[in-house]
Nucleic acid binder design. Structure first.
Lengths: 170, 170
DNA sequence: ACTATACGTCAGTGTTGTTGACATTCCAAG
DNA sequence: CTTGGAATGTCAACAACACTGACGTATAGT
């Protein structure tokens, strides 16, 4: 707090945004926004027997079809056991297909089935609708700033995975 | 996707940022950034017997000292049973104090003890450090955009609670 | 007195994370 | 070729934290 006051004591606006008060507001904004961000798909999922973890897995399988379990593990940042439980139900329910690797038969390559694609679409439609509304309300320049700050907030290691997804998608 | 292409068919950049691909990137950025955002306090908490839920409770009690249980419930958006489990341990460990209301003796007003303040400070220091670094990397204009988009992404009901916290804090 | 509100608690369940143990497969050193 | 280690994926058990439902107590307000 002393820190923040000192910054503002400089009188300039250039450092004002780094006061602890501003930082706390950013933290709270992040908390409330993330809740809104996940609320719509969560609502849909709660009717089914799935949760947020299933959504995440399907999102990234859809994003990088044929990816291996290990690959997905690094992106999601959970243990393989945790991911496996999720994948097992998705495979059992016919939403995800797991194919033994040709080059390395230890690997499993993951794909969405048509049913899986349909559900993923439904979930991400809801999430994109909110994102689209927020983007539209805020305007292009705000969106650019939004993305810049988010990228700076990621762990360095994840920036790699994020960038690869970003560049491959276009 | 057809949606996005059609927008870009207008030729202008004004709608280009609303392509599904851009929205998906925003979704992924949000996911990775939120993970980074919670990573530091989570690390500290994992050594203690506490979790993210304890951190959230302490954050908002610190932010609005003397707040009632019901108030906190609305902000956190969890059930009272869930919050109670967390508060019970925090009170038992002497980090939070619960005082019977003067005007309405049914209410319990919550405060951080000195120990509670110390832990909250330690946790939010870590989180603010990351936020500060991200803000500094991105610059003031990006930060403004960041906040604008986050506010637009919240549930409408939460914008009220957020605004009240924001305005009271300054 | 009666009803509503605020808070606490017990019991049960589901999702999602964890660790530990184990099976399968690949590859390289002997 | 065999053996041992590393990588990949699976099964089981457990902890954290959310949920619902039901109930109890104290207090407020009509």
């Amino acid at each position: 707090m002393a820190n923040g006051r000192m910054s503002s004591a400089h009188g300039g606006e250039s450092l004002l945004f780094l006061t602890d008060e501003q930082l706390r507001q950013g933290i709270e904004a992040m908390f409330f926004a993330y809740r809104g961000f996940t609320a719509d798909p969560d609502r849909i999922l709660s009717d089914l027997a799935y949760g947020r973890a299933h959504h995440r897995a399907m999102h990234f399988v859809n994003r990088a079809p044929g990816t291996t379990v290990n690959n997905l593990l690094n992106i999601l940042g959970v243990t393989k056991q945790s991911l496996n439980r999720v994948l097992r139900t998705l495979i059992a329910d016919g939403l995800v297909e797991s194919k033994v690797g040709q080059a390395d038969r230890r690997e499993r390559h993951l794909f969405l089935t048509p049913d899986g694609k349909a559900l993923e679409q439904k979930l991400s439609d809801a999430q994109r609708a909110r994102m689209r509304a927020a983007y539209r309300d805020a305007g292009p320049e705000a969106v650019s700033g939004f993305r810049t700050v988010l990228e700076a907030m990621m762990d360095k290691e994840m920036r790699g995975a994020y960038g690869r997804l970003r560049d491959s998608g276009t």
